[in-house]
C-alpha cells in the first residue's frame, strides 16, 4: 500500500492510496492493483470540511483506519470484512463536522452497490454479500446513488462511541425491480490504561430479493434478505520496554452472511445459514509503533476446516 498526500494550500489537500494485493498483479497472477482512496479535502471553517472523490465509508472501527499496525490479529475481523466490506470505498461527496464537544459527524452522497453483479453460481456472495457487489469506482454505475451518515463521539479520553448508516438502491434500472441496500452499525472502543476493549455490531438488509431471486432459483448462492454480525475484543499490553510492546488479545465474534431469505415458496426458499462463531487468540508484538509482528489462532465452530494459525508482519509509515 502506498499513500501520497499533497497539500495545495492552507485549506486544501489531496489524499491517495494505491494498493497492490498478493505481491504480483498480472493476467496469470491472483494479485490486484487498486486505488483505495483519491479525494480532495477542503477545510471551510475550523469545524467544517468537505471531501470529494473516492473515499472510505465511515463504518465500524476499521474501515477508515485499516493500517496493519492499527488492528489486532493478522487478518481483520470477520464482522468488518464479511458484513462491512472493508476496505469499503465509494465515489462521491461528503461533509465532515468536528465539534469541540468531541462529536464528529459525517454525511454524504456516493455511488452505491451493484446487485446486477450478483453471481449466484459463485460462493463469493456467501462469504461477503456486499463484498461481492461493491463497485470500487471501477466504471461504477451511478443511476442509483446512496446516502450515508456517521456519528462518532470521543468526548472522554480513551472512549469512542459511534454508529453509521448507509442506504441506497442498487439495481441501476437494470433489473426487474428496484432493490434497496441498507447497512448500519454501532461501535464502541474503550482504552483505559493498558487495556484496549472494542465491540462492533453491524446489520445489512437487501429489499425485494424475492423478485430478484426468482430467476436465480437452483443456483447455490441466492441473494440474502438480511445479514449481520458482532464481536467483542479485549487486548492488554502485558509488557513494554522503550518502543517494544507485547499485547495479547482475544476476540469472540459471530456473524451470518445469510441470516434470512425472502419467501420464494415451499421448497424453493433457501434455509438461512447458521451463525459462524469464531474465537481468535493471539498477540501483537510491536517492534516500533510503526512495525508489528502478529500471531494468532482462530477456531471456527461451524466450518472447522477453517481452523488456522496466522503469522503476519506489518508496517506503516
Amino acid at each position: 500500500m502506498l499513500g501520497y498526500q499533497h497539500r495545495f494550500d492552507a485549506k486544501t489537500k489531496v489524499v491517495t492510496e494505491l494498493e497492490v494485493e498478493h505481491a504480483v498483479s498480472s493476467a496469470d497472477d491472483p494479485g490486484e492493483v487498486e486505488v483505495e482512496q483519491a479525494y480532495i479535502e477542503h477545510q471551510f471553517t475550523p469545524t467544517w470540511a468537505a471531501r470529494a472523490g473516492l473515499f472510505l465509508i465511515p463504518a465500524g472501527l476499521l474501515n477508515e483506519n485499516h493500517e496493519p499496525t492499527s488492528f489486532y490479529g493478522v487478518e481483520r475481523n470477520f464482522v468488518e470484512t464479511a458484513i462491512i466490506p472493508s476496505t469499503w470505498r465509494e465515489g462521491g461527496v461528503q461533509i465532515v463536522g468536528s465539534f469541540d464537544n468531541g462529536l464528529t459527524v459525517q454525511g454524504g452522497v456516493t455511488t452505491s452497490f451493484d446487485l446486477t453483479k450478483w453471481d449466484a453460481t459463485s460462493t463469493e456472495g456467501r462469504e461477503s454479500p456486499l463484498g461481492a457487489i461493491h463497485q470500487e469506482m471501477a466504471l461504477a454505475k451511478a443511476r442509483d446513488l446512496a446516502v450515508f451518515g456517521a456519528v462518532n463521539w470521543r468526548g472522554v479520553p480513551g472512549l469512542l462511541l459511534g454508529g453509521s448508516l448507509f442506504t441506497g438502491n442498487a439495481t441501476h434500472g437494470q433489473a426487474t425491480t428496484q432493490s434497496r441496500i441498507t447497512l448500519w452499525d454501532l461501535h464502541a472502543r474503550w482504552t483505559p490504561g493498558r487495556w484496549d476493549l472494542s465491540s462492533v455490531y453491524s446489520r445489512g438488509t437487501i429489499s425485494n430479493t424475492a423478485a430478484l431471486n426468482a430467476t436465480l432459483v437452483g443456483n447455490p448462492t441466492l441473494i440474502p434478505k438480511s445479514f449481520d454480525g458482532w464481536y467483542v475484543q479485549g487486548a492488554y499490553k502485558v509488557w513494554s520496554h522503550e518502543d517494544y510492546a507485547l499485547s495479547p488479545f482475544v476476540r469472540w465474534e459471530q456473524f451470518n452472511t445469510a441470516r434470512s431469505y425472502a419467501d420464494l415458496g415451499p421448497g424453493l426458499t433457501p434455509d438461512a445459514s447458521p451463525y459462524e462463531r469464531v474465537v481468535t487468540l493471539g498477540a501483537n508484538f510491536q517492534i516500533t509503533p510503526q512495525i508489528v509482528v502478529k500471531a494468532d489462532y482462530q477456531r471456527f465452530r461451524e466450518n472447522k476446516d477453517l481452523n488456522r494459525v496466522n503469522l503476519g508482519l506489518g508496517w506503516s509509515f
Binding site: 500500500m1 502506498l2 499513500g3 501520497y4 498526500q5 499533497h6 497539500r7 494550500d9 492552507a10 485549506k11 489537500k13 492510496e17 477545510q43 475550523p46 493500517e67 496493519p68 499496525t69 493478522v74 487478518e75 477453517l306 481452523n307 488456522r308 494459525v309 496466522n310 503469522l311 503476519g312 508482519l313 506489518g314 508496517w315 506503516s316 509509515f317
Partner: peptide
Amino acid sequence: MRVTLAASAFAVSAAAPASAFAVDYL
C-alpha cells in the same frame, strides 16, 4: 488446520509547504 502468512505494509508520504496550516487555532 492451516497456517497462513501475511505481510502487509502501508506507506504514506506527504509533500506540504512548511507554512501550510490547515486549521490554526492559536
